Computed example of a mutant assay.
Amino acid sequence: MENSRFVTYTDNDRETVRKGISEIARILLGTDTDRKLSMLLCLDWFMDPYYKQDISNIHDDLVNLLQTVIISAYEDDVIEDAIDLLTSYELPPFPIIEQNRNLIPQKFQDDITYLLEMK
């Protein structure tokens, strides 16, 4: 049975995203798992075309940051959410993942294969 989790984000999280990639990275590469999960959920709102948020100024850096999170995070939920963002809103190539795939836990390798082979 999977454990359920409740994640939410605030206006403060949205403001953090609007401050730029360095502020997003500070959270996603930090040590506070709950904060990371909130930021990833907030990024879903920004990346979803339905909400018409213009993140073109950070798009490429954000894709690279999400790849870095996937290869470096130690929390399964964080890795899973970052993979979900890339799977939902981006297309390969993902060179950071391709070059560092061996750093990603085995339990995510099927998802990574799918991510790298999407068209």
Results as ranks from 00 to 15, higher is better:
residue 75 E to A: 15
residue 40 L to D: 02
residue 56 S to T: 14
residue 119 K to V: 14
residue 24 I to T: 03
residue 62 L to A: 06
residue 102 N to W: 06
residue 87 T to N: 14
residue 78 V to N: 03
residue 78 V to I: 06
residue 113 T to M: 11
residue 74 Y to A: 10
residue 80 E to P: 03
residue 44 D to K: 10
residue 43 L to W: 10
residue 68 T to F: 09
residue 60 D to N: 13
residue 40 L to F: 02
residue 35 R to G: 11
residue 91 L to P: 03
residue 40 L to W: 00
residue 70 I to H: 05
residue 76 D to K: 15
residue 99 Q to G: 07
residue 56 S to V: 08
residue 69 V to Y: 09
residue 37 L to S: 00
residue 54 D to W: 01
residue 21 I to Q: 01
residue 54 D to F: 00
residue 86 L to Y: 01
residue 5 R to V: 14
residue 45 W to M: 02
residue 105 P to L: 02
residue 97 I to P: 13
residue 47 M to V: 05
residue 38 S to L: 07
residue 6 F to V: 12
residue 13 D to E: 10
residue 46 F to I: 00
residue 89 Y to P: 09
residue 107 K to D: 07
residue 25 A to P: 00
residue 35 R to H: 14
residue 8 T to P: 06
residue 15 E to D: 13
residue 36 K to Y: 05
residue 60 D to Q: 12
residue 42 C to I: 04
residue 63 V to K: 10
residue 83 I to L: 10
residue 71 I to V: 14
residue 41 L to P: 00
residue 35 R to T: 10
residue 108 F to K: 01
residue 48 D to P: 00
residue 40 L to E: 02
residue 28 L to P: 01
residue 11 D to N: 14
residue 51 Y to G: 01
residue 45 W to Y: 13
residue 99 Q to E: 15
residue 112 I to K: 03
residue 74 Y to V: 12
residue 95 P to E: 06
residue 96 I to D: 06
residue 27 I to F: 08
